[in-house]
Design a binder for these strands. Sequence first.
DNA 1: CATCCGTATGGAATCGTTCCCATATGCGTA
DNA 2: TACGCATATGGGAACGATTCCATACGGATG
Lengths: 375, 375
Amino acid sequence: MGRRREDGAGHRPNGTPSPQPRRRPTIQDLARAAATSPSTASRALSGNGYVAADVRARVLEAAERIGYVPDINARTLRNRRSRAVGVLISDLRNPFYANLAAVIEQQLRSAGYHVIVVNNDGEQHAEVEGARTFLAVRVSAAIITPVSDRAVHMLMDDGVPVVQADRMVDGLTTDGVLVDNVQGARRITDHLIGLGHTRIALLIDETGWTTGAGRLAGYRAALRDAGLPMDPGLVVPTRFQPDTAREAVTALLDRRPDVTALFAANNRLAEGAFQALQEGGHRMPDDISLVAFDDVPWMSMVSPGITTVDQHTDDLGRACAQLVVDRIAGGAAGHMTVRYIEPSIVLRGSTAPPRTSPATSVRPDPGPAAAAPSA
Amino acid sequence: MGRRREDGAGHRPNGTPSPQPRRRPTIQDLARAAATSPSTASRALSGNGYVAADVRARVLEAAERIGYVPDINARTLRNRRSRAVGVLISDLRNPFYANLAAVIEQQLRSAGYHVIVVNNDGEQHAEVEGARTFLAVRVSAAIITPVSDRAVHMLMDDGVPVVQADRMVDGLTTDGVLVDNVQGARRITDHLIGLGHTRIALLIDETGWTTGAGRLAGYRAALRDAGLPMDPGLVVPTRFQPDTAREAVTALLDRRPDVTALFAANNRLAEGAFQALQEGGHRMPDDISLVAFDDVPWMSMVSPGITTVDQHTDDLGRACAQLVVDRIAGGAAGHMTVRYIEPSIVLRGSTAPPRTSPATSVRPDPGPAAAAPSA
DNA sequence: CATCCGTATGGAATCGTTCCCATATGCGTA
DNA sequence: TACGCATATGGGAACGATTCCATACGGATG
């Protein structure tokens, strides 16, 4: 493997300008080296059409020998579709998205695609810009955590299959992979209710996307089914930034000391909530229980560990990649498919029965006993 | 903004096959729509060469009206160089790399480049494969956290400027951005020594790259300068995985209960070390002090917070992007430049003087005394 | 008046690949 | 013998943008 180029001039340091950067071998060169024509060489490499076995071998050998790498741009120009998939993701700094991107990249790479990553940072402008890039390079498909419908429409209008990941925008009829937010939120709220909590606050940054809306709905459903009152003062709106969330939680606990449990709707908000509780001297789970949607690494590092909804990001990413690959293979045929990932609950030390248990009103602080995290 | 296409057939659901995916407008179409020639249209868009002001305006208006998006592949084919930069990164799941990728993407996007991301997962094979992809799409440059020299050589041989990020491989004469690992490790070791620690263990997974080698060297230099003995038994080798690190730390503390401080050479190892200490009932910083190289979010979430070396990943990423942009602009001219990022120490709760303070100048081997956890 | 230069435009070649098509050979069958 | 068919090969026309070049005009300069 890895024979050097015939004409290779050895390694040149970056700083040493080479008079002419040595023209890369083209399929013409390859054909010459294999004593055949470009057409035949192309067929030999791609496997499309007839090629005699010995000629094929000669071409492959020559390709290896002269270090031929097909020019993807020329190929894409001719085919009018590339082997690239655009991935438009909210924020690589958020471990949830980073993980998603990593899984998608890995899966698609092994399926023979490469990935073009664009951060949209939750901004429409960046999203549209990203879509434009995807069109310009003629991606085969795109995976998007959508901000608005504009970008998706641009791509769909050009016949580019789109998979919406993690959330879906209203009115868009694309494939998608979603987490069952309602179910996840309902079950973790149930967990709190089961422990005896009745005043459970929800910290949430948006309800316009399917993520926030679903989590809110699940929270409400659990309360309703348990016959608990829906106290609007317990749904705490905040911005996405942990700092804002922290302030919101501090203000909440100031205003409503009767709250015994807090549900943070995503990992960033949980970060702020956790800090607010620590700074405010509220002990978990003795003074207050904390749960979060979206399990990320720090939640199992802190003590107590945070009880969370695990979204199974790996499954999510794999499903996106799979859907994309299927859609590329199957063309536009077949109906829009939305796959749901069933989240699961991870119990850790941050949840326990409320201090004043509804059973016996004279139950004193269970103290350290309740603090012991799971093995 | 955002006028729809003239011929736009409205939005089609993914699942509805369109007879023919509506040919995208080319520069020919644009020229026709602006009543001029492709040559002039091209000049009008790129700003190269002469175009009368009114013609230029007509072209721009037409482009907007018909929704013209230039085909990057055709452009690249013709120019033999694309506006893409390849980013070959170790592991997007590691917050350090994810952050690095995010910053690089952001910077390059605003400089008019787009980014092709490939994970190499620390494997040579994936790295070479990634380099091949970069060549195939004719990236303008590549940013690599290198595993071996193979990929870098492939790119350099084709005249693609390479920036090595975070670490550099021996014998490669490319641009690079490095963290001053020696200085960082030395200073954080100094911090421990200043607190009175004399038996400081170093948990490290590799010393073959500049990262590990530098951190080891810094650690050693600090000990030497303080006149402390270099105890080889205190340099603990481990694999990269947190689990392995955890086991290594548990074994170490079993074997050497006299250790009063632990230095984890990166964020993954710190994860394992932190878990090992918690599971082993070693309280930080009372029983043992813990420091780490590479500050990542969980380290400020846990209690006590971990005292770390902050690598300033944002600066690192920005410097990489800058170097790439400069190198593309300046061609191969100019010498190879390596920029160093000066790390800083972040003091948190995980470090304190050792239990048996050195103030008591009687220096008996505290031995088992230090090992007995009281809690 | 002849030249030259700056401005402006369109024609046409080019980048590297793929694939349609024409062509050719050998073989089985009508 | 004539024909169809499977196998095999190479010529050449795309794909879409860029840029070199030829051309042209008006005004300034010798």
